[in-house]
């Protein structure tokens, strides 16, 4: 197995404003969102980050996608360091999270071409890929409709294909099925499995056990910003369901579930 993503000792703290302190119900001025987090993902696998709300999944993925810089630690993405060569990392990954919005004024067609251009995809290649993506997700019928007028599911599909204009080897998806109805969610998970079959490496974050069970080869559990368990799905589950194992590990690490 060839490692393609190597995360070592990632740490991220946020300074909390007075307003944020109130929302988080804390007096501390600094929030440690991710704490000394390490894991490795191998080429061609689907790696799942599992954690409850506020565990630090999104923060971890944002660091991997070079949107934010880690306070400590580094990650090597297909040979490129997120700290030293963020621009190179961006060429290697496709990142999708609900934070990334598309300009509602433009059509899927325009946006696809625009992002292809930013990624430097040759025009012919871009056109072919666009056609196959649009057909697969049924975007072709809405290609000239402004994004603002599309349904949530269709918007999500457009976001998805736009994040993959450059056919990256590593795909990082934060909560890929969040807010989607069961049909659309299935289209997305099927697509992820197809990508895996094509040899892509996929990192997904979720708090949905069934999604992990369905598509992931290996899983990392994050609690309060720390990686508490990281192994193959079989090894972690050890004959039980993922859900049962999650609560066992949670209690073991945090004491009681009510603490938080």
């Amino acid at each position: 197995m060839e490692p393609i993503l190597n995360v070592t000792g990632l740490k991220k703290t946020f300074k909390l404003s007075a307003k944020q302190q109130k929302i988080e119900k804390t007096n501390e001025k600094v929030k440690t969102a991710v704490n000394n987090l390490s894991f490795t993902a191998y080429r061609g696998e689907v790696f799942g980050l599992l954690g409850s709300n506020g565990a630090g999944k999104t923060t971890t993925l944002r660091m991997l996608a070079t949107l934010i810089k880690p306070d400590e630690g580094d990650a090597i993405v297909d040979g490129a360091s997120i700290v030293n060569h963020p621009e190179l990392v961006r060429t290697k990954i496709g990142f999708l999270t609900s934070e990334l919005k598309l300009e509602e004024f433009f059509t899927p067609n325009y946006l696809y071409d625009f992002f292809s251009e930013l990624h430097g995809v040759p025009a012919k290649e871009a056109a072919e890929r666009k056609q196959s993506y649009f057909e697969r997700f049924g975007i072709d019928k809405f290609a000239e409709v402004k994004v603002g007028n599309l349904s949530t599911g269709m918007k999500q599909k457009v976001s998805l294909v736009v994040s993959l204009v450059h056919d990256p080897d590593i795909i990082i998806f934060d909560e890929p099925t969040n807010g989607l109805d069961v049909l659309t969610a299935k289209v997305v998970t099927d697509f992820l499995q197809d990508l895996k079959e094509k040899g892509k490496t996929i990192i997904v974050s979720t708090h949905i056990f069934s999604l992990i069970e369905k598509i992931c080869d290996r899983v990392g559990m994050i609690i309060n910003g720390r990686m508490v368990a990281c192994d193959t799905l079989e090894a972690i589950c050890a004959g039980k369901t993922l859900e049962e194992r999650f609560f066992e590990i949670y209690e073991e690490k945090v004491g009681t579930i009510d603490e938080k």
Binding site: L67, R90, F115
Partner: peptide, 9 residues
């Protein structure tokens, strides 16, 4: 929408 631009190379 600016974040979407910032994840491109």
């Amino acid at each position: 929408t600016i974040a979407t631009l910032l994840v491109t190379p």
